[in-house]
């Protein structure tokens, strides 16, 4: 059933996945939360204060509620059909990005101010 090419493809893909996974995650372990709406920066919040709590509501095509607490952030509510952003859960150093695609809202944790632009370059 499997041919040689199939095995090569599978191995190559696993290697690719592993390489991307272990690639230096410059964005991880940061302490600045960036919220973007429609590809533009909307809010920037300092997460170094672990006691800081805020609930942000964004009304676009759909409604999103983002909760900032314990030095991290998450989507807690979305009224879009799929609700993928809520399923993404709370941001962590490995998982430092979540987005509501129908609403084009994203939240990400970065370590300093200019790196996001440098990567987007």
């Amino acid at each position: 059933m499997f041919k040689r090419g199939d095995i090569i493809i599978i191995i190559a893909l696993i290697v690719c996945a592993a390489l991307i996974y272990i690639a230096p995650t410059s964005g991880s372990g940061g302490d600045t939360l960036v919220i973007t709406v429609d590809g533009k920066e909307y809010r920037r919040i300092d997460l170094s204060d672990k006691n800081y709590t805020e609930t942000i509501e964004i009304d676009g095509k759909y409604k999103n509620i983002i909760e900032v607490k314990d030095g991290s952030a998450s989507f807690v509510y979305a009224d879009c059909p799929d609700g993928d952003c809520v399923k993404s859960g709370v941001l962590s150093p490995r998982h430092n990005f979540a987005a509501c695609l129908p609403n084009r809202v994203s939240i990400s944790v970065i370590s300093d101010d200019h790196e996001l632009d440098a990567l987007a370059g």
Partner: peptide, 8 residues
């Protein structure tokens, strides 16, 4: 989204 973080 202009968010390269999504690559992870």
């Amino acid at each position: 989204l202009m968010s390269p973080s999504y690559i992870f």
